[in-house]
């Protein structure tokens, strides 16, 4: 048991490194559309990882991802032709960072479902006010964004992903990470043993949003045209949450795998079965949540456990395995 765990611990980083190297090399040997698809996967991977960095560890389900993403998009919309690309990306991150600091500071008192609803409506509020302001005060009708080619966007997203994963890894390793997970398990107790609960929460929220903002800023250059309804789309709040749960929480790989499988599945459905996409998608979602409560990674761990430790652990595995086959 312990041995297998140790092996697993070594395997994970090695696999990650291999995957990253592979992904960096992808544009040079595949057709350009694969890059576009991988780009979408990376974008969702960033959103999902960032989401799980805060919500996965602290247990506060944030639905404001779309707001931070939109903040990034809008940064590019306004600064796109004024600054060089790397600076814009960082600016997008900072915009989201500041927004998250603000939102975090305001929502300190809220817990559980109230926090989720508040963050959800913040997306809509920003969308509506921005829209009203642009239409009625400055008379703008959407923004054109200078285009950057797909390969560049892809690399920038890849770098952001790696940075994000490193950040998550370092945070989890540090005292800071321990304090964070203590909030997740019992906030009062954490406060009692001297953890600065408030500061920690807000800071983590802001850090995780920083990456979402960066992803938004670079994705804007692939979207060409942005208005507030495009930028602040609630789907970008729901999808990362779903992807993270789909992949499995509590492990850095979970959100990653969730984002990749989820995006790929969706891609197949909307192209192969456009008229039945929603029905199949909904069914897969319901079955996943019923039969894979700990996500794809949970299933993989179960199988791993079974392989290394053939003690009979009945239940979930057999049924779950079936679905994993269909979704992978």
């Amino acid at each position: 048991m312990k041995k297998s765990k140790r092996i697993a611990k070594y395997i994970v980083p090695v696999v990650i490194v291999l995957v990253v190297v592979l992904m960096a090399a992808v544009p040079s040997f595949t057709d350009p559309y694969k890059v576009v698809l991988l780009r979408t996967i990376l974008m969702f991977a960033i959103l999902t990882l960032s989401w799980s960095l805060f919500s996965g560890t602290t247990g506060y389900t944030s639905l404001a991802t779309a707001a931070f993403y939109g903040a990034g998009l809008y940064t590019t919309a306004y600064l796109g032709d004024k600054l060089p690309l790397p600076l814009i990306v960082v600016c997008g991150g900072i915009a989201a960072f500041v927004l998250a600091l603000l939102m975090g500071a305001i929502t300190l008192r809220l817990k559980g479902i109230y926090f989720s609803i508040f963050t959800l409506s913040s997306v809509e509020l920003i969308k509506q006010i921005l829209h009203w302001y642009e239409i009625n005060i400055i008379g703008v009708r959407g923004h054109y964004v200078t285009r950057v080619n797909d390969v560049t966007v892809y690399y920038v997203l890849l770098v952001i992903t790696v940075l994000l994963m490193l950040t998550i890894y370092l945070i989890k390793r540090s005292r800071y990470g321990l304090a964070l997970s203590s909030i997740g398990s019992c906030e009062e107790a954490a406060a009692h043993i001297g953890v600065n609960v408030v500061g920690l929460k807000v800071l983590t929220y802001a850090i995780s949003s920083f990456f979402i903002g960066m992803a938004g800023a670079i994705m804007a250059t692939a979207m060409l045209y942005i208005d507030s309804y495009v930028a602040f789309d609630l789907n970008y709040s729901f999808f990362p949450t779903l992807m993270a749960i789909f992949g499995g929480l509590g492990n850095i790989l979970g959100p990653l795998v969730g984002a990749a499988v989820f995006t790929y599945l969706r891609e197949i459905l909307i192209t192969k079965y456009p008229y039945h996409y929603m029905l199949i998608f909904g069914t897969v979602m319901v079955l996943t949540i019923l039969y894979l409560p700990s996500g794809l990674i949970g299933l993989a761990q179960n199988i791993w456990k079974k392989l290394t430790n053939p003690a009979p652990e009945k239940g979930l595995k057999t049924e779950g395995g079936k679905h994993a086959d269909t979704s992978c």
Binding site: G112, H276, L279, G282, M285, I289, P293
Partner: peptide, 30 residues
């Protein structure tokens, strides 16, 4: 079924929302 399978009430809140999302897709599609 979901409630029986989820260990804690907090986990149930999260996963039931996800399931509702799936139902949303199915109902709308039909």
């Amino acid at each position: 079924t979901l409630k029986d399978r989820t260990p804690t009430p907090a986990a149930f809140e999260g996963s039931s929302m996800l399931m509702a999302f799936g139902i949303l897709f199915m109902v709308q599609s039909i």
